[in-house]
Simulated assay, not measured.
Amino acid sequence: MTAKTAALVTGAASGIGECVARRFAADDRHEVVACLDLDPAVHDLRDDIGPSVHPYECDVADHDAVGDVVQQVEADADILSVVNNAGTSRYFWIGDLEPDEWDRILDVNLTGQYNVARHATPPMFEREAGSVVNVSSGAGQRGSASGGVHYSAAKAGVFGLTKGLAKQLGPHVTVNCVVPGLIDTPLMSESGLWDAAGIAEFEETLPLERVGDPDEVARVIEFCCGPGASYMTGSVVNVDGGGSLS
């Protein structure tokens, strides 16, 4: 192994991904935190979090661009942790759901995770060390009233990707899936998928009676990438305030 170790986090410009990046930058296991996001705001993280952050403005749906980023990171440090967090959602009724919209949502939410895994995990496997966390959604388990069937389909696919990778990359690389519920991120507050009344109504259905904070999810992701989760692989971990109970 090289002298440095790295974490790679997608969707890092805000929300859960930003919280994960902050946690990785504060620990002593990752000297480099590669932060990928299509949002140019990802470049602000280095000044905000610290010099260990290496920002990359990258669309995870672009297979070659992801490969270029992974190659740049690996030239300086060995990737030890991968967090596939990038995601997007837009509602369309099935009768209005055109192929280009279907393709875009699957490209970001599912194929993007494949792209990262395709480029980042073979070196991890060869070094016999590393952890991958794929972020899915309750929409993939129960369907989504707000995100559309394409979002539900993509997030369901993440479960299959996780379990398949867990079998291929064992015994030294673990692969797990974290499933957030409704979390206070831009996807909730700025996407137009939820309004205040809808959020309040949803909270009433939850045993914990509130939406989640992104750092509450980031803490679980950090655990799944650490030594405490050394005997976990192929696992699906819900972080949803009890939403999966209904």
Rank of each mutant, 00 (worst) to 15 (best):
46 R>D: 08
173 V>M: 06
98 E>W: 13
13 A>W: 00
213 D>P: 06
11 G>I: 03
60 V>Q: 02
213 D>G: 10
169 L>A: 05
124 M>A: 12
206 L>T: 11
221 I>L: 03
180 P>D: 12
226 G>M: 14
88 T>V: 15
91 Y>F: 15
166 A>H: 00
232 M>W: 10
45 L>K: 03
73 V>H: 02
180 P>S: 08
16 I>A: 02
51 P>R: 05
7 A>Q: 08
165 L>T: 04
160 G>I: 04
79 I>D: 05
233 T>P: 00
160 G>A: 09
22 R>N: 05
218 A>E: 01
28 D>E: 14
194 W>A: 00
86 A>P: 02
188 M>W: 08
64 D>Q: 13
114 Y>P: 02
121 T>R: 12
15 G>A: 12
49 I>S: 07
89 S>L: 11
138 G>A: 05
181 G>M: 03
200 A>G: 15
110 L>Y: 02
148 G>V: 01
152 S>P: 00
233 T>N: 05
135 V>A: 09
13 A>S: 06
42 V>P: 00
203 E>M: 06
20 V>N: 06
132 V>T: 12
170 G>W: 13
99 P>C: 14
214 P>L: 09
246 S>E: 15
162 T>R: 01
10 T>Q: 11
245 L>M: 14
224 C>P: 05
225 C>K: 02
184 D>P: 10
133 V>D: 02
217 V>E: 01
245 L>R: 11
114 Y>W: 14
235 S>N: 15
71 Q>N: 12
225 C>V: 15
47 D>V: 08
54 H>C: 12
44 D>M: 06
156 A>S: 09
43 H>N: 12
49 I>D: 06
169 L>I: 04
240 D>G: 11
72 Q>Y: 07
63 H>V: 12
9 V>A: 02
191 S>C: 11
200 A>F: 10
164 G>A: 15
45 L>Q: 00
18 E>R: 07
157 G>E: 07
98 E>T: 14
18 E>N: 08
76 D>C: 14
80 L>P: 03
201 E>G: 10
211 V>I: 13
131 S>V: 10
209 E>N: 11
14 S>L: 08
183 I>W: 02
102 W>H: 13
42 V>T: 06
193 L>E: 10
163 K>L: 07
143 G>Y: 06
126 E>F: 15
71 Q>T: 10
206 L>N: 01
91 Y>E: 04
68 D>S: 11
79 I>P: 05
142 R>V: 14
161 L>R: 00
173 V>R: 07
181 G>H: 04
38 L>G: 08
19 C>I: 04
150 H>I: 08
89 S>T: 11
